[in-house]
Design a protein around this nucleic acid. Structure first.
Length: 881
RNA sequence: GCCCGGAUGGUGGAAUGGUAGACACGAAGGACUUAAAAUCCUUUGGCUUCACGGCUGUGCGGGUUCAAGUCCCGCUUCGGGUACCA
């Protein structure tokens, strides 16, 4: 577990996953495993810094305060964390290793043939002997130079060239710039053109920024998903985010110019239907292909596009574009096709240029309709008069040598043709982008980087950690530099300036699980011994919000360390469970307009009312505590009420849990009122772990009663009832049935049904008036992972001097569960009519015979002869009429 | 638009293709109590019947099966992810 400690503290939704993993940890320990169950804090990041800007307090101070508050709240719930392993990303001892990993990434490149990271020296050697000839390296831009050319480059030029290949690299990139936050953001930190944190507008800007070459690992990140025990929806989300698509890169010549450019397409089969080409406005080709006559119009278009933010472009789907004046030549059919410029083509994907096939692509279709460009249908029988036909099915027509083939066959034929005639090359494209790694902020890891002649160099590892400097204000400098620009002496001993940006939030959270294995290690992130012992995370419980961020970065980071031989597992998280979100359940009161009179829920329709949120903590089972309501807000001091049966019933709705909805429930309050065990059990009892559900404190009495009833098996009027009598067969059956159910449920993370099983067990033992130690002791051990406090107490009461945590988990003995009698439901045409008790070992034939001979059978046969009789041994009898 | 995941009483939910609604909340009635709280007991999907019982019922429409909440096909609807990815 690795939460970001916020100032608001924990609400009742946060501990859900923690409780689930605590139960599993305690269970595994009882089963004899050495369990690593740690807790730490993802403590760097924007919220702490925003708060610091507002209050002037150092983020380190508020972060420490928040962590202390979290710890206090966590301790109340009774987690079995190994606090000796606690880590915090903002501690120099920890972020030393974040900086260290960055240095390694700078010093490596990705070999595409071996599909792994290799030292950059190997690449330099290649350059020295044969230039770029035959190198297979992931890069920002395809470069070509010879060995002599390389050698003739200056130091600065060589360094600049190497950045093109390094896994951690500095480059001029189009980045997501958020003015309000004053920083760039990674793709997963932007949604709908707004920052995920804060919801501020984000615009595209070209800036020189640090990036991690995550895209190099795209194929491995995709392949690795097959080896993981993750949910289908999560692997699906990652697959989409990685976005692998197979296609071809096709070369188009320009008419009357000695120039050509490439486009990427997955539909090579539609080459005969290309009626225009489109360039992204940001594409470098625009300058090249715009003819003088069109220059003014193109310029105007580019200006207009630049002014629109990403968000405006998304919100407004108007078709826009401008003709460049140039014509491309279709490499297969030889036709001349106009080249347009439009912002529906993205510069960042493929080559930033497309071949448009309006008949079979809805975006191209919209564009063609708007600008009156020709639409050529290529599939027999398709109707493109109203919309494009995007499906990859049907028989080809209007397509020369592809005519008569199915689309799937035609795609392959066209690709073969392209490869054979060398019109382009087959290519796999990924949607996954490199991760922008610079943040123009203070509260993050400083880069271990200094600049010499404007080129970045890494600090020597012996200089790590490079600690965050003290600054006077957490704002950009007057010159617009990041906050670190305010630091005094922010340079090396040789006076080279240090990097002013800091690392993003995901830097520190990408390898934290490795540090848990060996948290005090001074010489390595994790020792080989510790890593080989613990390997990777067996069970990871977290929310789906990490699907495209943290869970991609961590996997990338881990794979990189794996390539370097520093960790022994290729994937960091073996099994992953997404706990559902706990939503808020809000309550409402209804005020009659222009009055201070409130009317109960079912009478509100008789009046003209306004719905007002009311604090859920002064409502119980949707009934308002009127006295507390009056004191809740001075405005309601003299409020009057129209009641139903003497009560004020509130309305309710499921909403986000937030302060403004007055529906936040604090775990501390629940613990105060009912105890930690009740909170733990109730959180689990609410429903399946993976499912989202509203928090509704109604119902918590049920689990609390269960605990009291359990207690009553041990004590009556403070007198201990437990004895050493021999258990009856029935009592043993109740116990072992429960052992079997609980074991199965824990292994399957079905904790809500475990709680029911405990209730059933205690109810049955209560009915049997069972006070026998031989039954109650295993039950207490069984319950210990769920309700550790009461279990510990009762375990001691039973005469044990050791902690219940060191007990052995009970094992189900099937012998006690064998039934001698089976209740057979007798059904007619699938409808159950009556039951008969029969010996469990009775044969099919005998069961059938007795069922048919039964008095009641005759009645339900209605004089007919049965067509068929189905006997499922131990289950059911069905008589078909 | 595309991709996932849901839909079961008044509520949260349970059910390896085999008695739908376990368990719990709430509600109603009762016991104990001067009273309340706590505790205990009974009832509680709907319709129908004095009753025994009967009919009906897992979002909707089809299908497979001796048997479907569960499997298949087609919809409706709610949540989540993603969004000009060529």
């Amino acid at each position: 577990m690795f939460p970001s400690p916020s100032g608001a503290g924990l609400h009742v939704g946060h501990p859900l996953g923690y409780i689930a993993s605590d139960i599993y940890s305690r269970y595994k320990r009882l089963k004899g495993f050495n369990v690593l169950h740690p807790m730490g804090y993802d403590a760097f990041g924007l919220p702490a810094e925003q708060y610091a800007i507002q209050t002037g307090q150092h983020p380190d101070v508020t972060t420490k305060k928040n962590i202390a508050r979290y710890r206090e709240q966590l301790d109340k719930i009774g987690f079995c964390y190994d606090w000796d392993r606690e880590i915090r990303t903002c501690e120099p001892d920890y972020y030393k290793w974040t900086q260290w990993a960055f240095i390694q990434m700078f010093n490596h490149y990705f070999n595409t043939k071996l599909q792994k990271a290799q030292p950059i020296e190997l690449l330099i050697n290649s350059f020295e002997t044969s230039g770029t000839e035959g190198i297979q390296a992931s890069c920002t831009e395809e470069l070509q130079f010879t060995a002599p050319e390389w050698k003739s480059k200056s130091e600065k030029e060589q360094q600049e060239t190497l950045l093109n290949y390094r896994i951690a690299y500095l480059a001029d990139l189009k980045v997501n710039w958020c003015t309000a936050l004053g920083t760039v953001l990674a793709n997963d930190e932007v949604s709908d053109g707004l920052s995920v944190r804060g919801g501020y507008p984000v615009e595209q800007r070209v800036m020189r920024q640090w990036s991690l070459r995550v895209s190099a690992y795209a194929q491995r990140l995709l392949d690795g998903l097959n080896t993981l025990e993750w949910t289908d929806s999560l692997t699906e989300t990652q697959k989409n985010w990685i976005g692998r698509s197979e296609g071809a890169e096709l070369r188009f010549d320009i008419k009357d110019q000695d120039y050509n450019f490439e486009v990427f397409t997955t539909r090579a089969d539609t080459i005969f239907g290309v009626t225009f080409m489109v360039l992204a406005p940001e594409s470098e080709l625009v300058k090249q292909l715009t003819i003088p006559d069109q220059a003014l119009e193109v310029e105007n278009y580019l200006d207009a596009t630049k002014k629109r933010t990403e968000r405006e472009r998304i919100a407004d789907r108007r078709v826009t574009g401008v003709f460049s004046g140039s014509y491309a030549i279709n490499p297969v059919s030889g036709t001349e096709i106009p080249v347009w410029i439009s912002d529906y083509v993205l510069a960042g994907y493929g080559t930033g240029a497309i071949m448009a096939v309006p008949a079979h692509d809805s975006r191209d279709y919209a564009f063609a309709k708007y600008f009156n460009l020709p639409i050529i249908p290529l599939i027999e029988g398709c109707d493109v008069s109203e919309e494009s036909f995007d499906a990859k099915e049907g028989i080809m027509m209007n397509s020369g040598f592809l005519n008569g083939w199915t689309v799937k066959e035609a795609i392959q034929k066209a690709k073969d043709y392209i490869a054979e005639k060398q019109l382009g090359r087959l290519k796999v494209n990924f949607r996954l982008r490199d991760a922008i790694f610079s943040r123009q902020r203070y509260w993050g890891e400083p880069f271990p980087v200094y600049y010499k002649d404007e080129m970045p160099y890494m600090l020597d590892e012996s200089r790590l950690p490079l600690e965050l400097p003290v600054i006077d204000k957490f704002l950009p400098t007057e010159k617009g530099e990041p906050p670190l620009g305010r630091a005094k002496d922010w340079h090396t001993e040789d006076n080279f300036p240090l990097e002013l940006c800091t690392m993003p939030g995901f830097a520190g959270s990408s390898a934290y699980y490795l540090r848990y294995m060996d948290p005090q290690n001074k010489t390595a992130l994790v020792s080989a011994e510790a890593n080989q012992y613990w390997r990777n995370v067996d069970l990871y419980i977290g929310g789906t919000e990490h699907a495209t961020g943290h869970l991609i970065y961590s996997r990338f980071w881990n794979k990189f360390l794996y390539d370097l031989g520093l960790v022994c597992e290729d994937e960091p998280f073996k099994k992953l469970i997404n706990q559902g979100m706990i939503q808020g359940r809000s309550n409402f009161v209804y005020r009659i307009k222009d009055s201070n009179t409130f009317v109960s829920l079912n009478l509100k329709d008789q009046y003209d009312t306004t719905q007002i949120h009311v604090d859920v903590n002064i409502v119980s089972n949707d009934v308002l505590d009127i006295e507390r309501f009056k004191n809740w807000n001075p405005e309601y001091k003299n409020a009057e009420f129209i009641l139903e049966d003497g009560k004020y019933h509130c309305g309710w709705a499921v909403e986000k849990m937030s302060k403004s909805m007055y529906n936040v429930v604090n775990p501390d309050d629940i613990v105060e009122k009912y105890g930690a065990d009740t909170l733990r059990l109730y959180e689990m009892f609410l429903g399946p772990l993976e499912q989202s559900k509203p928090w509704d404190t109604n119902g918590i009495d049920g689990v609390h009663r269960f605990l009291k009833r359990l207690w009553s098996l041990f004590y009556k009027n403070n007198t201990l009832l437990v004895n050493n009598e021999k258990p009856s067969a029935e009592e043993l059956k109740v116990l072992h049935k429960t052992i079997r159910k609980i074991t199965f449920d824990i292994e399957n993370f079905s904790y809500n049904t475990s709680v029911s099983a405990f209730m059933i067990c205690v109810n049955e033992l209560y009915t049997l008036k069972c006070t026998k130690k031989s039954i109650l002791e295993p039950l207490v051990i069984l319950l210990a992972p769920f309700a550790p406090h009461v279990a510990e107490e009762l375990y001691r009461v039973l005469g044990n001097n050791e902690t219940v945590c060191d007990a052995a988990f009970p094992i189900c003995n099937e012998e006690y569960l064998k039934e001698s009698i089976v209740k057979y439901p007798i059904s007619f045409n699938g409808k159950v009519r009556f039951m008969i008790d029969l010996p469990a070992d009775m044969s099919k034939e005998e069961v059938e015979k007795i069922a048919m001979a039964n008095d009641q059978t005759e009645k339900f046969l209605e004089g007919k002869a049965p067509k068929k009789i189905i006997v499922v041994l131990g289950k059911i009898v069905n008589i078909v009429l």
